[in-house]
């Protein structure tokens, strides 16, 4: 009898210490030896949406005031809203019980469109510097901040958040089909910094620290 399971396109070979069933997902909460960071964390099972309309001002998705300018982000109630352009916002629910897709037809669920991951730790900028020429450390920009551009030669959406001298992080989404090669590229770049996979618990803790 077939297991009715939803699967993430990212799979790490490391031993999981704690796995939680969330709906039909098997979410790794913690790996056996995560270390202190930097970490790469799979978030593909987290709900994500695309919101598009010619007049975004008539929306307050999940009670969030949509940021006014492309590149701006707002995190509220664990949902991150990223203004992409004049008519489009991406919404990522980072933690918590999964919200339903809002009724309005302006919303499209993008959870299966993309792979979503986080790279957390001081080394994130050194890792990113190997894979992209985007200026994630631009001192003129405040965080959280959305970048749309190439990462390891693949078009991605990336959000930089967290304290630069604490635990900065990057949330990244790109086409689901690139998951394997994207993770391989990140792991390769992060090898010298001892990048390790971590589970949802480490991520939830980081999100809590963002507020």
């Amino acid at each position: 009898m077939t297991d009715i399971k939803r699967r993430s396109p990212m799979v790490f070979p490391q031993e999981a210490k704690q796995v939680e069933k969330q709906g039909h997902w098997a979410v790794v909460m913690e790996y056996a030896s995560e270390g202190e960071g930097p970490w790469i964390i799979d978030l593909s099972h987290r709900p994500r949406w695309d919101l598009q309309d010619s007049d975004l001002s008539r929306f307050k998705p999940f009670e969030i005031d949509i940021p006014g300018k492309p590149g701006q982000c707002r995190l509220e109630n664990n949902v991150l809203a990223n203004r992409m352009n004049r008519t489009q916002v991406s919404l990522w629910q980072l933690t918590g019980d999964r919200l339903e897709t809002p009724e309005d037809t302006a919303f499209t669920s993008t959870m299966d469109v993309t792979v979503c991951l986080a790279i957390l730790g001081q080394a994130v900028f050194s890792i990113a510097e190997k894979l992209s020429s985007l200026d994630f450390r631009d001192p003129a920009l405040s965080t959280p901040r959305l970048f749309q551009g190439p990462f390891a030669h693949v078009p991605c959406q990336m959000v930089i958040a967290g304290q630069p001298d604490g635990m900065p992080g990057m949330l990244l989404t790109c086409s689901r089909g690139y998951a394997r090669d994207m993770v391989a590229a990140i792991l390769h770049a992060g090898h010298e910094f001892k990048l390790q996979p971590a589970g949802q618990l480490a991520f939830d803790k980081w999100v809590a620290g963002l507020a």
Partner: peptide, 11 residues
């Protein structure tokens, strides 16, 4: 350089 070959895979 590192020359990551980025290709896509289906599930």
């Amino acid at each position: 350089g590192t020359n990551h070959l980025m290709s896509k895979r289906t599930p």
